[in-house]
Design a protein around this nucleic acid. Structure first.
Length: 745
DNA sequence: AGAGCTCACTTTTTT
DNA sequence: AGTGAGCTCT
């Protein structure tokens, strides 16, 4: 980590030197955990162990990459053949090679959330189960929970009304996945474990080939991951796990804090090493972190210490609303850069949920000069519609059984194949137990369920796919991507529509093509299959690009493992952080507390905590009391209490208030002692009254939106003050926006 | 068949 | 406040 003077301290050295047998390293935040793992890998390789016999597992791609790079730097050469990656990527790789026994071909595809939902909806329709009564989302989350617990469809036991339905859908869903030659995220883990459970010889083979196994962030492993590790290390039993129970933040994904608490019990003779010296943070930061975490009941007692005494006191900001909070952050960043010699990449801003990033982004852009930033996670590049379209074409080329991909692209760009036709194909496919593509092929060539026009169109589509699929394995992925875009008419249809949005989409597509080229350049065996796998397992593109000179924005979850000289934690309010869904569940609240601990302990020197007295959330303005975590932090650690006023209404600011006949913002004023009163409230803001007739409807009026410019109102829904306007903008087409965010013209 | 419009629902957090 | 599914109108 940061300042360890190149030397390992005694417990670190002991952990690096540990030879054989199970080892548990309890590594507090900032205690040099990554250092220990990388030094250990380097030592093993240096002493002549074949890197192919080392398996190192992490939770994120970023962590895996960093670990590899640091280990390579230590021994000053490339480490070829080392098994290092996330649980999911390692499983994906094993299944690629050995998945036959669990029903996966070598070119199987990985389904993401959206794909899963499409498939589940289809299954529910087949099983005649109402999607209204049973949300596909919820059903999938039950299935995922089962998979994380190691429960297969056959083993799944219903225990109540809802799980009764799940018990019916789980096996049907798995059958459908198998027909599509696809695995979802949960399958990657569970199927690998099933494979190893069932195939004694394979387990022997793999576990004896992995002489040393290392697991990072062990506190976040769930039961399948735990079993996977156990199976893969069963021959040599050289298993080194590193973790910190205080940083266990993935309970919702099935992580069992017990795995780390019970490691000694499950591995008799395990050596336990505690790393408690912190090299990252000032004493002030550690004290604050400790004050928050020590209120948790379920934890191993430990106390981090540092020899950096004192430190910068914490700044606490109380803002009237989230926009002001964001302006506070932006102005402090400028101050730090101007006065404290900071660069932008010294600064990170953490929030509890992605939705909170918007206000911050806007403030950073509005700052003068604008502050460069990078958002981690959130809306992935790969989630954009046009990107998914192209990827689905590619998936379909290597995996003709991928019905989900086919459904996505069969009418994109529009080629006159409508819902009815697709439904007929689905019926035909499930009746004959064949893939949709085969059903389409059959329908086009023989007397199938389709009539003349539809049959011809479907035939053309099949011809298109067949032509594209020819020679797939000998063609560069980037070439294939370009061919898809041209031959399918995708680019042409974008060009034809001519909107600004279409231009953006075309740009995104060409960005994707160049990222495929990059992949080809950087990868030895750059096949389409390996590219698609990488994309499915990548969190986002910022994963790959490491741009300098940017402030980092991310959720607390994705902040784990990172450190920054200056940290802002925003939105410290009851219901935001801790999250509303944790408030009435003590165990969940403990997890939120650990999350707060993770956030604080990322800080090296300067910590800013902020909250807003009221904020827009899910379309509503609501006042929330301060986070209970704030009151845990001892008074003497806080240097400055910044209170802020809202910006006076700017000329181009949205009209502040409702204004439809008699509508009032009937939100309660915050009633806290330090409540701030908005005396600069702009009484003269223009009204919407004149836009609508007596019924509050109609009038072909125009409004102005900050981003989209001038547009024409099409319709109006909702109740004051939360009105939704559907406005047609020349630039981006129809958008539904809230009345507060437009200005009448 | 397709475009447009309305409504409902959403939100933790990630692989 | 954005998205997506379903309905209606063309």
């Amino acid at each position: 980590m940061s300042a360890n003077n190149g030397q390992l301290n005694p417990p670190q050295a002991q952990a690096v030197a540990h030879q054989d047998g199970p080892l548990l390293v309890l590594a507090g935040a900032g205690s040099g955990k990554t250092r220990v793992i990388t030094q250990r890998i380097a030592r093993l390789v240096d002493e002549g162990l074949d890197p192919r016999r080392i398996l190192a597992v992490t939770f994120t791609n970023k962590a895996a990459r960093e670990m590899r790079e640091r280990a390579e730097r230590l021994i000053a050469r490339r480490i070829a053949g080392l098994w290092i990656g996330t649980f999911h990527s390692i499983c994906a790789r094993l299944l690629r090679r050995y998945g036959d026994a669990v029903g996966l071909s070598p070119s199987y595809v990985i389904y993401d959330d959206g794909d899963q939902r499409t498939l589940m909806r289809q299954v529910m329709r087949q099983e005649a189960i109402s999607e209204r009564l049973f949300a596909p989302r919820d059903v999938l989350s039950h299935i995922d929970r089962a998979k994380n617990a190691g429960t297969s469809a056959e083993q799944y036991q219903a225990h109540d009304y809802f799980s009764d339905i799940v018990a019916r859908l789980y096996p049907a869903y798995q059958r459908q996945l198998q027909r599509c030659d696809a695995a979802d995220f949960g399958d990657l883990l569970l199927k690998t474990v099933q494979l190893l459970r069932a195939d004694e010889a394979l387990r022997q083979h793999l576990s004896s080939s992995f002489e040393q196994v290392l697991v990072d962030e062990f506190q976040d492993t769930n039961p399948v991951q735990y079993e996977l590790i156990r199976l893969l290390s069963s021959t040599h039993n050289n298993i080194c796990v590193v973790g910190d129970d205080d940083q266990s933040i993935y309970r919702w994904r099935g992580a069992q804090i017990e795995n780390i608490l019970g490691f000694e019990r499950d591995h008799p003779g395990a050596q336990v090493i505690k790393l408690e010296q912190n090299y990252r943070s000032s004493q002030v930061v550690l004290d604050a972190a400790h004050a928050v975490i020590s209120r948790n009941a379920q934890r191993k007692a430990k106390q981090l210490w540092t020899d950096q005494q004192g430190g910068e006191p914490i700044t606490l900001c109380v803002a009237p609303d989230e926009r002001t909070e964001a302006r506070f952050v932006a102005s402090r960043i400028h101050q730090l850069v101007a006065q404290a010699g900071h660069t932008f990449d010294d600064v990170a801003i953490f929030y509890r949920t992605h939705a909170q990033s918007r206000a911050i982004e806007e403030a950073l852009r509005a700052a003068s000069p604008p502050i460069p930033y990078a958002v981690y996670g959130g809306m992935r590049f790969y989630d954009r519609a046009e990107i998914k379209d192209l990827l689905c074409y590619l998936k379909l080329l290597i995996n003709p059984a991928d019905d989900v991909a086919l459904q996505r692209v069969i009418n994109v760009p529009a080629r006159g194949i409508g819902k009815t036709t697709v439904e007929k194909l689905i019926g035909h496919a499930s009746a004959h137990g064949i893939s949709l593509l085969d059903a389409a092929r059959a329908a086009a060539t023989s007397d199938g369920p389709l009539g003349g026009a539809a049959r011809r169109k479907v035939g053309d589509f099949v011809k298109l796919i067949d032509a594209l699929a020819e020679g797939v394995s000998e063609t560069l992925p980037s070439t294939l991507a370009e061919r898809v875009l041209d031959d399918s008419g995708y680019l042409q249809s974008l060009a034809q529509s001519g909107t600004v949005e279409a231009t953006t989409r075309a740009e995104n597509l060409s960005e994707l093509v160049s990222s495929i080229r990059q992949f080809e350049a950087a990868t030895e065996e750059a096949t389409l299959v390996s590219y698609l796998e990488q994309v499915s397992l990548a969190t986002d593109v910022t994963d790959q690009t490491n741009e300098q000179g940017q402030v980092s924005l991310m959720t607390v979850h994705s902040a784990k493992g990172l450190e920054f000289p200056t940290v802002f934690v925003i939105g410290l309010e009851q219901g935001i952080f801790p999250h509303a869904r944790s408030l009435d569940a003590p165990e969940e609240l403990e997890e939120e507390r650990r999350l707060a601990y993770v956030a604080i302990t990322r800080t090296k020197r300067r910590l800013f905590l902020s909250r807003a007295m009221q904020r827009w959330h899910l379309g509503q303005l609501k006042a929330r009391p301060p986070s209970e975590f704030l009151s845990d932090i001892p008074e003497q650690l806080i240097g400055e209490r910044a209170g802020l006023h809202a910006a006076p209404a700017r000329r181009n600011a949205p009209a502040r208030l409702p204004a439809f006949a008699g509508a009032h913002l009937d939100q309660p004023e915050p009633t806290y002692d330090d409540a701030w009163v908005d005396d600069e409230f702009d009484q003269s803001a223009p009204d919407f009254d004149d836009l609508f007739d007596a019924d509050g409807f109609r009038v072909g009026m125009r409004v102005k939106h900050r981003k989209f410019g001038v547009g024409e109102i099409r319709s109006l829904t909702g109740t004051a003050p939360n009105l939704n306007l559907t406005v047609y903008f020349k630039t981006v087409g129809a958008k539904t926006i809230r009345s507060q965010f437009v200005e009448p013209l």
